[in-house]
């Protein structure tokens, strides 16, 4: 039986808190902030542009995941 095709679905753990979309985005920004602080505090200031470029790309990837049904068409444009 080719259960290869089963996509992951969201788990149904008991929940006390479901994050809103805004909260999710803010959390991601929070993570980016922490990352930038970490990199500069460690003295690797020269890595900042690289981290920023990656993070922008990261946001793009996350955004594309949320529209995964039409993602291939978007990729065709770019």
């Amino acid at each position: 039986m080719a259960s290869v095709s089963q996509a992951q679905t969201e788990p149904t753990a008991p929940t006390e808190h479901t994050p809103t979309r805004t909260e999710s985005i803010l959390m991601r920004f929070g993570t980016v902030g922490e990352l930038l602080m970490l990199v500069s505090a460690g003295g690797r200031w020269w890595m900042l542009p690289l981290v920023l470029a990656l993070v922008v790309l990261g946001f793009g990837l996350v955004a594309l995941q949320s529209v995964e049904y039409i993602a291939p068409f978007i990729y065709m444009v770019f």
């Binding site: 929940t15 808190h17 994050p19 999710s24 990656l54 990261g58």
Partner: peptide, 22 residues
């Protein structure tokens, strides 16, 4: 690809998966 797509966002994943307050 794995980091930017998911692993970097552990806090989000923990909150979304377990429904824990951040």
């Amino acid at each position: 690809v794995t980091w930017l797509g998911s692993k970097l966002w552990v806090r989000n994943q923990l909150v979304a998966t377990f429904g824990i307050q951040p």
